[in-house]
Design a protein around this nucleic acid. Structure first.
Length: 261
DNA sequence: ATGGTTGGTAGCCAA
């Protein structure tokens, strides 16, 4: 059971790359962020032709998340609880029935960027994180196998950034952002990529500007958080860094976990 | 070095 998360930065711009990656990597579940597409204009047919079930939560112009899966989910939730006035499409949760009583629950989330610090955008980011912590607390009580995957827009620790001093004023590296992320993890999750990286620097994002990819000036902001029930089944962790070197790449690359069936 | 680049939309914003 291969579960991936990838911020594709526009499904129209990434149409060919997405299909090529799906066809070669063949994840069982793919969590996408920043589809930048409305549900009706998402390229559903081309993805279904590769054998995927498609669930989207899009909006016009920006944001938007999706769940692609080999098996059809038994339930899909398209809203992070806690603020009925929040219109941003940043959350989609699917439930899949496993063998026996086991259930797998996978969230594709696109956490607010929050820049610039000191504005309502940063306040919104921190409020969104509080809502995520509250929702994750209730999801852990289900004892389903749970994977919270997505673009968290949080650099957890200095090891997760090539040049920490360049990010000190950025919303992604603020003490408040990092502390909220730690509180989320400390509910009982494991940060799968960090746990598998053995104290090595590992990145999932390289900016388009100033040759960041060529200089390996990256940050690790795409995370897969595993509940205890999911941790028990963890087999391996990977990052498809090579995708960043493709023609017309996203600025993010896929991160993946393998769970025993 | 307060720049640089990309995507989506529409005459700039988000990242």
């Amino acid at each position: 059971m291969l579960i991936a998360t990838w911020n594709i930065n526009g499904v129209k711009a990434r149409h060919d790359a997405l299909l090529a990656w799906l066809d070669s990597r063949k994840p069982d579940i793919a969590c996408l962020q920043e589809i930048k597409s409305q549900d009706e204009s998402f390229p559903r047919e081309a993805i279904e032709a590769l054998g995927y079930h498609v669930e989207t939560h899009g909006q016009k112009g920006f944001n938007g998340v999706a769940l692609l899966s080999r098996e059809k989910p038994i339930e899909v939730i398209r809203r992070l609880p806690g603020d009925d006035g929040d219109e941003h499409a940043r959350f989609i949760e699917g439930i899949w029935q496993g063998a026996g009583e086991r259930r797998l629950r996978v969230v594709s989330l696109y956490l607010p960027n929050g820049n610039p610090v000191g504005t309502e955008k940063f306040t919104y980011k921190l409020a969104w994180m509080e809502r995520l912590i509250a929702h994750a607390t209730s999801l852990l009580e289900t004892e389903d196998e749970l994977v919270l995957a997505g673009d968290y827009n949080v650099i957890p620790e200095p090891i997760d950034v090539a040049n920490p001093q360049n990010w000190l004023g950025d919303a992604l590296f603020q003490p408040e952002s990092r502390q909220a992320f730690r509180r989320l993890v400390n509910l009982g999750f494991v940060d799968a990529v960090r746990a598998a990286s053995d104290a090595q620097k590992t990145y999932t994002f390289w900016d388009y500007q100033a040759g960041a990819w060529q200089k390996n000036n990256g940050i690790r902001i795409d995370h897969l958080l595993l509940s205890p029930e999911a941790q028990e089944r963890l087999v391996s962790v990977g990052i498809d860094s090579h995708v960043r070197g493709w023609e017309k790449p996203s600025d993010h690359v896929p991160a993946l976990i393998e769970l025993a069936r």
